[in-house]
C-alpha cells in the first residue's frame, strides 16, 4: 500500500518521481540523438546534436562493417543454447531432488545449494586453464558450457516441483505411468511459469555476460555483441568517432530493451526472483 494514498503530497511525490524518471532517461536519449549526427559536426560541437541536419551515416557504417552482425548472431546462439541447456538440466535435476528417492540425494542437494555461494571470480581462472588445456577457447562450447553449471536453476526448479501437490503424481502412478512419463507429460507442463522465469533470467545473464566471454573468445569472429562492443570501445580515442560509438551503443542496447518491452512483467519477476531466492 502506498505511503501517499491521495491528495497534494501524493501528487508532489509522483511529479518529483516523474522528473527523476526523465533524468534517468537523459543518458539514453543523449546517446540516441548523437547517434544521428555526423562525426564532423560532433567533433566541432556536440551542442549541434539538438539541431538538424541528422543523418543515418553512423548506422550505415555499422551495417557496412558487418562484424556486429556476426557478434549479434553469436550472442543469439550462445544465449539460446545456454537457456535451453539450463532449462533441461535444471528441470531434470529439480524433479529428481524434489520427487525421487535415491541414496545421497540430500547430501547432493546441500552441495548444490552451497554452490550458490561460489562467485564466478573464484572459478574463472581454473575454468580458463581447463579450456586452454582442452584447446577449446574460441568455440561456442566454451561460451555455453560454464553457464550450465549455474546452481540457481536447480534450486528454483526443485522449489517449484516441491510445491506441486503429491496427489498428482500418485494418481498418475496408480494408472501405471512411468517416472519419466510423470515427469515429462504431467509435471513438466505444470512448471511452465518457473521455466519462463528461469529461461528469461538465463537468457539475459548469457547475453550480458562480460568477463568469461572476454577472456575465452579472443578471435574477432567469436565475440558476443557485449564483448565486441567493449573491444571497439577500448580504442575510444582512435575509434571511428563519437557518432559511430553512439550508434554502436544503440545497436547493442536495442535487442535487450526490445525484449524487455515485450516481456516486461516476466523479466521483472525473473530478476526479482533470482535475487530474492
Amino acid at each position: 500500500m502506498s505511503l501517499c494514498v491521495g491528495g497534494r503530497p501524493a501528487r508532489t511525490a509522483i511529479m518529483l518521481t516523474a522528473i527523476a524518471a526523465l533524468i534517468m532517461l537523459t543518458p539514453m536519449l543523449w546517446v540516441v540523438i548523437l547517434s544521428f549526427k555526423d562525426n564532423a559536426s560532433l567533433m566541432a560541437d556536440t551542442r549541434s546534436a539538438f539541431l538538424p541536419p541528422w543523418t543515418l551515416a553512423n548506422y550505415w557504417s555499422i551495417v557496412g562493417e558487418g562484424q556486429v552482425f556476426t557478434w549479434l548472431m553469436n550472442s543469439v546462439i550462445v544465449a539460446l543454447a545456454m537457456t535451453v541447456g539450463v532449462l533441461l538440466l535444471a528441470s531434470l535435476a529439480g524433479f529428481g531432488f524434489a520427487r525421487l528417492e535415491f541414496p545421497g540425494r540430500r547430501f547432493l542437494f546441500v552441495i548444490v545449494l552451497l554452490g550458490l555461494a561460489i562467485p564466478e571470480q573464484a572459478v574463472i581462472i581454473g575454468r580458463h586453464q581447463m579450456f586452454s588445456a582442452a584447446e577449446m577457447h574460441n568455440t561456442y562450447a566454451a561460451l555455453v558450457l560454464p553457464g550450465l553449471s549455474m546452481p540457481f536453476g536447480v534450486f528454483l526448479m526443485t522449489q517449484y516441483f516441491r510445491a506441486i501437490p503429491r496427489e498428482i503424481d500418485d494418481a498418475a502412478r496408480l494408472d501405471g505411468a512411468s517416472r519419466l512419463r510423470i515427469f515429462w507429460k504431467i509435471l513438466l507442463p505444470l512448471t511452465l511459469p518457473a521455466q519462463a522465469t528461469l529461461g528469461i533470467f538465463v537468457f539475459f545473464h548469457a547475453w550480458n555476460d562480460y568477463w568469461w566471454p572476454m577472456i575465452s573468445a579472443t578471435d574477432k569472429d567469436m565475440l558476443t555483441l557485449t564483448v565486441g562492443v567493449a573491444a571497439t570501445q577500448m580504442n575510444f580515442a582512435q575509434a571511428e568517432g563519437l557518432g559511430f560509438l553512439m550508434a554502436q551503443a544503440v545497436f547493442a542496447g536495442l535487442p535487450t530493451l526490445l525484449v524487455y518491452l515485450a516481456f516486461q512483467k516476466y523479466i521483472v519477476r525473473a530478476v526479482a526472483g533470482a535475487a530474492g531466492q
Binding site: P27, M28, W30, V31, L34, F204, W207, N208, Y210, L225, T226, V227, V229, A230, Q233, F236, L242, L245, M246, Q248, A249, A252, G253, T256, L257, V259, Y260, I267
Partner: peptide, 13 residues
C-alpha cells in the same frame, strides 16, 4: 536489462 558494455559506453559519452 542493458549490458555493462552499453552502460559504460553511455556514461563515458
Amino acid at each position: 536489462v542493458l549490458s555493462v558494455t552499453v552502460v559504460a559506453l553511455i556514461w563515458r559519452l
